[in-house]
Amino acid sequence: MTVTTLFTGVFGVYMGERGAVFEVADGSTAGDLLNHLGEERCSRLPSGLWDAENGRFHRSIRLARCGGPVLARSDTLRDGEELLVIFPLAGG
């Protein structure tokens, strides 16, 4: 199935693009997609954001359905949906 991910704000700047389309297996979870995203495209991210050695994102990175809830890593994805990569660090 196909899902679209949007990269906004600073995450989009670090990625150098505003989004990407991924083919994932049926039944894939949010955690699966994050792992796939990281392994495939995140070599350009700062080390504090994507830990290439251990193959994982900074713990704050999550996925959310556009206009909807933030997903747990175990939540199953739906075919054709648009997802937002959430990188919530901000100043104050």
Partner: peptide
């Protein structure tokens, strides 16, 4: 090396307003 410090260093404290606006923060 902190991603937090590197982000505010690059773009200031309003760095991630687009993301935070999407979240509703």
């Amino acid at each position: 090396e902190s991603i937090f410090c590197r982000t505010v260093q690059a773009f200031g404290t309003a760095a991630n307003m687009e993301m935070k606006m999407m979240e509703g923060d």
